[in-house]
Design a protein around this nucleic acid. Sequence first.
DNA 1: ACCGTAACACTAACCGTTAGGGTTTCGGAA
DNA 2: TTCCGAAACCCTAACGGTTAGTGTTACGGT
Lengths: 191, 191
Amino acid sequence: MTAPPGRRERKKAATRQKIADTALRLFLERGYDAVGIRDVAAEADVAVTTLFSHFPSKEALVFEQDRDFEQRLTRAVTGRAPDEPLVPALRREVLALVRHCTADSAAPIWHMIDSSAALREYEESMRLRHAESLAAAIDADAGLPQTTTACRTLARFAIDAYALAREAADPEAAVDEIFGMIEAAWETAPR
Amino acid sequence: MTAPPGRRERKKAATRQKIADTALRLFLERGYDAVGIRDVAAEADVAVTTLFSHFPSKEALVFEQDRDFEQRLTRAVTGRAPDEPLVPALRREVLALVRHCTADSAAPIWHMIDSSAALREYEESMRLRHAESLAAAIDADAGLPQTTTACRTLARFAIDAYALAREAADPEAAVDEIFGMIEAAWETAPR
DNA sequence: ACCGTAACACTAACCGTTAGGGTTTCGGAA
DNA sequence: TTCCGAAACCCTAACGGTTAGTGTTACGGT
């Protein structure tokens, strides 16, 4: 599938990694708002323009680790066992994602995100984009006769569940509670 | 209630109005991204700092007209007839809001918003803030035994309904469809 | 051995936004 | 009526994220 990549691509990946690592370290050390793009670039020993050729924005540096979020959600739909119903599969994946980001090791990062308005907003629009892909995956699922609107609704509800559970006092219980509601909603969806 | 406001407040309101009108006109004429804050300020004959003392950001200029959105939603909950159930009241209000913003007269503005990533993102975070107030209003409603999590979930679902319906081919049908799902979700919510 | 190009660097700006500091003008108290 | 405090406004200068323009290097395929 993937032939041993050449020196070129290895160097590129290394540069990207160095930028992301440096950025996250500086952000955690001094605080997101107190670190400028120019600081990150200097510390990573790259030009500012290079940084922006790897990452579309300052905020994107923070969510490097989170890159597979979108794919995990869509694959939870497209790659589930042939007879597994949709919503429980989604619920399992959302639960796993919530567990992952409420783990103790992730606490400093999420504390940083919650402290910065820019990061919170960025995350939300990111999740919305994810909801769009998820909606497409659900809509494309053969054997689901539901409306396109219903599919988009389900996708957004699932993203909501993730966002709300992350902030809840007991995240795992919140996933259960919200997905109970989603289950009922989906069963009512017209087809 | 409101005594005849003094000259001072009238002038302030006039300035604010002039800025908002000028901004919207320029945005529609030349496109949101093609008009800078300095352009708006110059055309409205105010200093840039004055503009930002009236509006917190460039995006906020566009949503001047939309200012009562939040209040309309919360009042649909807090001010409904004593015996009217919650979700239908919400549905009525969301339907009215969707009708309002899909009216022909509003088309150019919404086309502009949809064309600009900055405006789309701003709108979404704005709606999320609205969802928080709505959740608080629902939570505070006496006689509703539901969980706080369930209230926050309902609030977000209602906001989702608005956003999804706005984009749907048949917005009013979409409101019906989504609120059917929400109704089922809410009935399932633990109390 | 050579060429095309991908990755990177440097400079200089653009744009939204804010701080600092000054001037006018109103509203209410003396 | 007079005067004072403060609100509204202005100007200048900057900050920080982001991008365009233009080279330079070094890798990969011919």
